[in-house]
């Protein structure tokens, strides 16, 4: 069996991972043409209860990621890429299946939502402390984070006063403050202007050199081919293809 003969040390193993989450306040409806009045009446009556929809975002994904691998995850919007990444990072508990790791993965991304009503300064401190840094370490990295995000004196204003680009840059800068063994990046490299993208690519490469394993979610085929040596194509929560980045991306772009 190939799995056991592979001599590289695995860093992360996903074993048949499913993620189902509930969404309140809306209901998926099949699009229908003409329908009977009776059915409409029944549907109407049901609506008095709050609508709850179960979304099966990830449907049985198994994969083995090794040290030194950088893996791109591609797929259309809503394919389950980001949910899978969160499940692999241990942030959304899988409803079925397991994830095994040899180090705590760290999700780096524009989605590291903090407290919008608070100042950038407080968000930096809280973000660092939440990631497990000590108070001294957090203070040490404060200037570096402000510098990297390039938000200047805005750091002392509440995040609600920020442009969306500034918010994203600050979040990226906060989550880039630690160098994890397993790094997961969600679309973050596409954030901000050209100068910031160049800076973040530098950071990404630096982390990739130190870190064992990198996951990168993107629907931009170019950035996957540029950054990754392996790619996994996901559609409707299932793996369609898994192989070298060049092969999978070729297949993916042809299918699109």
């Amino acid at each position: 069996m190939a799995v056991t003969s592979d001599s590289r040390k695995p860093a992360l193993i996903a074993d048949n991972v499913h993620v189902v989450y509930r969404v309140f306040g809306g209901r998926k409806k099949a699009y229908r043409g003409a329908e009977s009045r009776f059915r409409d009446a029944v549907e109407g009556a049901k609506k008095t209860r709050s609508a709850v929809t179960e979304i099966h975002a990830v449907r049985g994904i198994s994969l083995v990621a090794h040290h030194g691998e950088s893996i791109g995850i591609v797929g259309r919007n809503g394919a389950g890429k980001s949910t899978l990444l969160r499940a692999l990072a241990g942030l959304i508990p899988p409803s079925q299946g397991h994830v095994h790791v040899d180090a705590q993965p760290s999700l780096l991304g524009v989605s590291a939502a903090l407290m919008p009503s608070m100042t950038g300064e407080k968000n930096i401190m809280l973000g660092c402390l939440a990631m497990g840094l000590s108070l001294d370490e957090a203070r040490e990295r404060f200037d570096e984070i402000v510098e990297f995000s390039g938000i200047g004196e805005f750091v002392y204003l509440p995040m609600t006063a920020y442009s969306s680009g500034m918010q994203a840059r600050l979040r990226f800068a906060i989550s880039a403050a630690i160098v994890p063994d397993i790094l997961m990046v969600d679309e973050a490299l596409a954030t901000g202007d050209r100068a910031f993208r160049a800076k973040s690519k530098e950071k990404f490469d630096e982390i990739r050199e130190k870190a064992g394993t990198v996951f990168l979610v993107s629907h931009n085929p170019g950035s996957i081919e540029e950054h990754c040596d392996r790619a996994i194509w996901i559609d409707k929560g299932k793996i369609i293809a898994d192989g070298t980045a060049t092969d999978v991306m070729k297949e993916y772009t042809q299918a699109e």
């Binding site: 193993i13 397991h98 994830v99 095994h100």
Partner: peptide, 10 residues
């Protein structure tokens, strides 16, 4: 495989 390489469940 996870067990063999000492990976811990997340």
């Amino acid at each position: 495989l996870a067990h063999q390489h000492g990976l811990r469940p997340l």
